[in-house]
C-alpha cells in the first residue's frame, strides 16, 4: 500500500494515533502529528511512498507536536521529537511540515552510519549516479529539480548515502526542498510538478517541497554507481560553464560536505577515494538557464 491509497481520515487516524509508518529508502520511519499541515503535506508529497504495517520495525520514531501549555493557543508552535525526546527549538506551527523534513534529515545524518553521508543531491541515468555536493545557496536543489523534471531519477535531494566501499550510492528519495525564488522558477519549468504549500518566514526564507516522481520512489532499492561529481554554483546571469575539476580538489570538497566523515576515520577516506577514483569531476556554474543546464548534463550522461 502507498500513502495515496490511504483515505484522508485513515491518514489522520494513524498520525494522531499509532503512527504512520513509511518506507524511506533504506529506513523505516514512524511519524505522529496532530497538525493538519503535516497530514496534508504527507498526503501530497509522500503520496507514492510505501506504507508499512503496524507490526513492521521502525528505525526512527518521530513526532511533530505542539508543546504543552499556553503556546497551544497563543502563537502556536511545533516541536520535533525523536523517540519521545524534543530536538531543536520550537518553530511556528505553520512550519510543522518543513520541521518534519529537517528533523528526518537529522535522524538520517545522525544515525545511518552504515553509510558515508554527504550533503549532496544525487541523480541517476543508466545506472550511473551524479552527485551534486554543495552548500546552501548554490542552486543545488533547483538544478536537482530541473534534472528530475527532465527524466533523471531522483536518489536524493539532500543526502548521498554512500556504501563504505565507495562503489554504490543508495537511494533515499524524498521531497525536493526549494527555497525562495527557486519555487517559482521550478513551478514554471516543471508545470506538472506536485509542489506543496509555500511556507514563508522560515530560517531559510520561504520553502516549498516537490513530490519525487513515482518511478524514483518505486526504484528506491536500486542503488547506483558513482560516475560524476559536479560542484554546482548558481550565479545570477552568469554564462554556463562546465569545467574539469582536479580530483584532489573534488575529494576535499566531498570531505567538507560529508556529515559523518570523521565517524568513519580511515574507512571514510577510503570510501571517498574510491568514489572519486570512479567519477569524472567538474565545477559547474550556471546563471539560471535551466534548459541549457539540463542539456549539458544530458550530454555528458550520454557520452
Amino acid at each position: 500500500m502507498i500513502v495515496a491509497e490511504l483515505a484522508a481520515a485513515e491518514l489522520r487516524r494513524r498520525l494522531t494515533g499509532p503512527g504512520l509508518r513509511l518506507r524511506l529508502g533504506p529506513v523505516a520511519t514512524e511519524i505522529r502529528s496532530p497538525f493538519a499541515v503535516v497530514a496534508s503535506g504527507l498526503a501530497l508529497l509522500y503520496a507514492k511512498h510505501e506504507v508499512l504495517g503496524a507490526g513492521d520495525f521502525a528505525d526512527f520514531r518521530v513526532a511533530v507536536e505542539p508543546p504543552f501549555g499556553v503556546r497551544r493557543f497563543v502563537a502556536p508552535q511545533a516541536l520535533f521529537k525523536f523517540d519521545g525526546n524534543t530536538r531543536f527549538r520550537p518553530l511556528p506551527a505553520a512550519q510543522a511540515f518543513p520541521l518534519l523534513e529537517w528533523g528526518l534529515n537529522w535522524c538520517i545524518t545522525m544515525h545511518c552510519h552504515q553509510y558515508l553521508i554527504i550533503h549532496s543531491a544525487v541523480l541517476e541515468r543508466n545506472g550511473r549516479a551524479l552527485l551534486l555536493p554543495a552548500p546552501p545557496g548554490s542552486g543545488k536543489s533547483t538544478l536537482c529539480a530541473a534534472l528530475v523534471a527532465r527524466g533523471w531519477r531522483l536518489l536524493s535531494d539532500e543526502l548521498a548515502l554512500v556504501e563504505l566501499d565507495g562503489t554504490r550510492v543508495v537511494p533515499i528519495p524524498r521531497p525536493i526542498s526549494l527555497k525562495n525564488r527557486s519555487i517559482d522558477t521550478i513551478a514554471r519549468f516543471w508545470p506538472d510538478a506536485a509542489i506543496g504549500d509555500v511556507v514563508p518566514d522560515t530560517l531559510k526564507g520561504s520553502v516549498a517541497h516537490v513530490r519525487p516522481p513515482a518511478d524514483s520512489v518505486q526504484r528506491a532499492r536500486e542503488s547506483a554507481v558513482p560516475a560524476w561529481v559536479v560542484l554546482p554554483r548558481y550565479e545570477n546571469g552568469a554564462a554556463m560553464e562546465l569545467a574539469a575539476l582536479p580530483k584532489c580538489d573534488a575529494f576535499m570538497r566531498l570531505v567538507d560536505s560529508a556529515f559523518n566523515y570523521s565517524v568513519h576515520g580511515r574507512a571514510g577516506f577510503d570510501a571517498l577515494a574510491a568514489l572519486v577514483d570512479g567519477s569524472d569531476c567538474y565545477a559547474f556554474t550556471y546563471g539560471g538557464a535551466l534548459d541549457e543546464a539540463v542539456a549539458a548534463f544530458d550530454r555528458f550522461a550520454s557520452s
Binding site: 584532489c248 576535499m252 577516506f269 577510503d270 572519486v276
Partner: peptide, 22 residues
C-alpha cells in the same frame, strides 16, 4: 598514513590526528 594521488597531487589521511590533508 593512507593516501591517494591524482594528477601528481596528494590527499592523505592521518589516523593519529584524524586529519585529512591536500
Amino acid at each position: 598514513l593512507v593516501s591517494r594521488s591524482w594528477d601528481d597531487e596528494l590527499v592523505l589521511y592521518n589516523d593519529v590526528t584524524g586529519d585529512t590533508h591536500h
